[in-house]
Amino acid sequence: MKLSLRMFFVLTIVSFLSGFSLSYIWKISYEKIEIQKKKRIENAIKSVYGGANRFEDEERNGFRFYRVFKNENFLGYAFISKGSGYQGEISVLVGVLPDLKTLRGIKILENVETPGLGSKVAEDFFVKQFRRRRCPLRLNVDIKAITGATISSKAVLKIVNNGVKKLEEVFKK
């Protein structure tokens, strides 16, 4: 066989087989990945709302949020808010009580802040400060910044404030 033809065949077959096997593996894993994602969010909501056991997700004007229930009692709202930190994106799960102002609590889902400094925003002592605070939050009035990580602390505050504002706007309309 001519060389160019052989090159053509080998590459085509290799690419085809690779594409085929990948799409198959994606198909059998896709559901599992989605379940994992959902589980992660629900676990985060549960860590903010102790005792929550039912969630309804809803999307309004492009804003996605969850209504959180314990049995039949409506506890409040939860949503994921994202924004830039000191390096890269921080994503925060925010729980807001039905008055749309008071925080139930927050949980940092993802951050790539400096390990040991900015990454402390995900630790309990910082996150706990957000419980039962009214938005908009002010740095060093409502929430004490982390020493050496003022930018990361500010970023979390801004992400939470922005998220709560968006939730309010959704309900105003």
Partner: peptide, 29 residues
Amino acid sequence: PSEVRIPTYIIIIATSVTVADIFLRANYP
């Protein structure tokens, strides 16, 4: 054929890396 060996290897490597990546995402998020 040795003329296209590098692209062939890259496709094979990329496929297997993607499999590993999907596996991690599905089982160890």
